[in-house]
């Protein structure tokens, strides 16, 4: 009876209202057998961290097209830490200038995806990352 599914939160922080990319990714992950919680547009970092906590997700995918990623991503990571969800795999998708990518990875983002990334790539990365962290982060006791 025991069954475990990868749970992913797809969120759009910030003010841009263009969520087509986020929906395409959400659907691809669903079709890959994952449980995808889609929260819609204009989410604050607090809302994203709270949803990640309540839903106990393995992965948070952030879609950012507004150019505000260097402000928003650190805020989301900080809020995730505050609620004790710093073990989740964080992915960022959107229009991210190449210079910013290493900075985001440095902050703790697992992967950054630009336009045109095949969704199969994202699926594969998530599976690898969650499998890898499953033994360590998932089983550590509640502080």
């Amino acid at each position: 009876m025991e069954e475990r599914r990868i749970r992913v939160l797809i969120a759009k922080p910030g003010l841009d209202g263009h969520d087509r990319g986020a929906k395409i990714v959400a659907r691809a992950l669903r079709d890959a057998g994952m449980e995808v919680i889609y929260t819609g547009i204009r989410q604050t970092p607090e809302m994203i961290a709270e949803a990640a906590l309540q839903e106990d997700v393995d992965v948070v995918g952030l879609s950012i097209l507004s150019g505000a990623h260097m402000t928003l991503v650190p805020q989301v990571l900080e809020k995730l830490r505050e609620v004790g969800m710093d073990h989740v795999v964080v992915l960022v998708g959107g229009i991210i200038p190449p210079d910013d990518v290493p900075k985001l990875l440095e902050m703790g983002v697992y992967r950054v995806y630009g336009p045109g990334t095949p969704t199969s790539q994202i699926v594969e990365d998530i599976r690898k990352a969650v499998l890898h962290s499953a033994s360590s982060a998932q089983l550590e006791p509640v502080p």
Binding site: R27, L29, R30, G33, M34, E35, V36, I37
Partner: peptide, 11 residues
């Protein structure tokens, strides 16, 4: 078919 799900009620 896939066991996946899109959970959108939080919207």
């Amino acid at each position: 078919f896939t066991g996946g799900a899109l959970l959108g009620d939080r919207i």
